[in-house]
Design a protein around this nucleic acid. Structure first.
Lengths: 150, 150
DNA sequence: CTAGATTACTTTGCTAGCAGACTATACACC
DNA sequence: GGTGTATAGTCTGCTAGCAAAGTAATCTAG
């Protein structure tokens, strides 16, 4: 075994890919079990919380790196759960504004506990601060360099 | 902005998650465009290449961290493309052995070029060797600690 | 040797998300 | 104004993958 001659960055890339696919599944499983939310749902709620609580569909799509159709479905789900509400933008009647409801704000609070616990269990005991800093740097840089894709 | 008080490992975790979701999509898009293969297909082929070229379905499922049903579909696809062939294990007739065909071996060669080019474009210019080593260490450790899940 | 339990795989029904078509509104230029 | 073009969102198939039920072969007890 191990007659591979892979450059370091390639091994880093494949390890990162494998690990994060598994962990995404694990985290999503937790969140869905506890709150009936997908990670995409949670991200949408977080974005609404952070950015004015009233975003247009296309803004949400862009922030979630999701197709327009996918975003429609995410917001459909959240609206059905009573966590967000749609309203028409009077200034541009093509646009749909999405806002958090009170129930949505409560859901964020509960979800945050689940996510934190999950991430902590998965990651915290395995990461030193130095390693965390490297990860943040690298991921930021790579994300920025590839964000425009698609 | 940035009145967040998140611990470092949490930011590292979320950055890693976001980045790798995007990059998986980008890489898969390349591979599918060039060879009509999904990453799961490619992983299956690689596993067949590395481990004796004849694995049982359940071995493949385990290695790909995929459900049994999902594995059936992956192998269906690859068989239809002529890259693998199924045969019954004479020693245990419940089992299905999957083997690479010559065309499958060629496909691996072509896919490797696509994957390498994609990974290189995405990662190589952004990773120093030191950073790569940190990533490999961390991802290995985290994967190992969470592998048993599911 | 045969009844029940286990294992290996496939099939079926479901959900998430994409791509592309469609509708409605807004803008630009004549 | 009117006409062409771009944009916002939704709708309609389609695919990947899961979970759970179904089938077939093997093992274990008695």
């Amino acid at each position: 075994m191990g007659h591979d001659e892979q450059p370091l960055w390639r091994r880093a890339a494949t390890h990162t890919l494998h690990t994060s696919i598994l962990l995404k599944a694990k985290l999503e499983d937790r969140l869905q079990g506890a709150e009936g939310l997908l990670l995409a749902d949670h991200e949408a709620l977080l974005n609404l919380e952070h950015f004015g609580e009233s975003l247009r569909m296309s803004d949400i799509a862009h922030r979630l790196v999701l197709s327009r159709g996918g975003t429609t479905k995410v917001i459909d789900r959240l609206e059905e759960m009573g966590y967000v509400s749609r309203s028409s933008d009077p200034a541009d009647r093509r646009a749909t504004m999405v806002g958090l409801t009170a129930a949505g704000r409560e859901a964020i609070g509960r979800a945050k506990l689940v996510i934190d616990a999950g991430l902590e269990e998965i990651w915290s005991t395995h990461l030193t601060d130095d390693q965390s800093i490297v990860l943040i740097e690298v991921m930021d840089r790579v994300l920025e360099a590839n964000r425009d894709w698609h």
